[in-house]
Write a protein that binds this DNA or RNA. Sequence first.
DNA 1: TGGTATGTTCCAAA
DNA 2: TTTTGGAACATACC
Length: 296
Amino acid sequence: MPELPEVETTVRAFRPRLEGRRIVRFVSRVAKQANPSVAAVRRGIVGKRIIRLRRRAKYIVVDLGDERGEGPEDAPGRGSKARRRRKQRGQRQRGHLLIHLGMSGRFEWAAEGNRPQHVRAILELDDGHRMLFCDARKFGKIIYATDFKAATEHLGVEPLGRGFTAVRFERLLRGRARQLKPLLLDQSIVAGLGNIYADETLFRARLHPATRSDRLTSREIERLRRAIQTVLLKAIRLRGTSFDQVYRGGQMWERLTVYGRAGLPCRRCRTPIEALRIAQRGTHICPKCQPLDGRP
DNA sequence: TGGTATGTTCCAAA
DNA sequence: TTTTGGAACATACC
């Protein structure tokens, strides 16, 4: 399920009930998923107040505050809304909980009659609500960090952020000679795309996934940049892509152009969509709309 | 049974 | 040095 749009959808859905609440209990049933350890995460977050819920790349970020605190103010968004809000409550930024959903992670509220499978961790709030972290494949991560910048320095540019400019993207692509598909999946370059939206983006930009990043014209680079933003924004608007039992609610599944459509007619030219294997990942293209024209 | 899967990381080979 | 391939992680589904 979770690429940038699904993470953004999760953040928007859970923000109203989480912001302003204090965490009173944390339970983790899979030690490996907690970083640096279950005990360290518990020490870091229990008793703290949730100042803000936001997203960075595919991470759900919980900014924590401590009203007694004399902690350092290493908050993001200096001088902005977040700081003002925090000041009003007389709080200091005190650590961050970073949650990565991995392949199959999702949030659920505990409720009567809601007995989700694969509950791996529980966050209990001061209003009695309990948030469940469910994750069948256990690839998700729950990280406590005091230094947000250090914890996320491995991540590349935010594709929906102001920093994702034509100049910057051009430098990122021209500075290496990689195939476009694995480059788009590399979170240290552009952070947030996964296998589905990488395929959708390349189709929209009419570029073959094996094209080398240093062989694109400026025009193609700009087409790709806009395709990334358009595809992600559309997916967010539709609340992400739904998958079988794992994640429900999103409408993007019916709107995908190539992913999961092998053999079906291209929505643009009716040529059958092809399934390839590029960089060990299932890859879907329209062979006519995305020609390789001699620059693999 | 084997192959596939929305993700990340690490190591070896080219 | 950079890029690519393969395996590993854990589980579910076809």
